[in-house]
């Protein structure tokens, strides 16, 4: 098995090529105003374990099943996010 480094950006893997776009339904999104806040948040392994993917500099997505754990983890870490329903 060859030993190479993983692709640096998941966008290289089957990127969305159609301009119509791809709909992702029922995901939970973490949104921050400052990208460093998200970087710092994801540097906490407890939080990173719950995040499915970082989809940009200021947003990451979480699977529905992990949302209660995420909210609890945020609270435990001293964050008081604005939680908005769909």
């Amino acid at each position: 098995m060859s030993q190479t480094t993983p692709s640096p950006d998941h966008d290289e893997v089957h990127p969305v090529s159609d301009a119509l776009g791809m709909l992702h339904r029922d995901l939970t999104v973490i949104e921050v105003t400052d990208a460093t806040d998200l970087t710092s948040l994801l540097s906490d392994t407890r939080m990173a374990e719950l995040v499915l993917a970082r989809i940009g500099t200021t947003a990451a997505v979480v699977e529905p099943r992990n949302v209660p754990k995420l909210l609890a983890a945020l609270q435990k870490a001293g964050h008081t996010p604005t939680v908005l329903g769909a």
Binding site: A19, D26, D37, T80, V83
Partner: peptide, 17 residues
């Protein structure tokens, strides 16, 4: 501080190239 971090639950996201 609270407004700096938002969690949108059960969303619909559209991804573009």
């Amino acid at each position: 501080r609270r407004d700096r971090l938002k969690v949108h639950t059960g969303t619909r996201l559209i991804e573009y190239p």
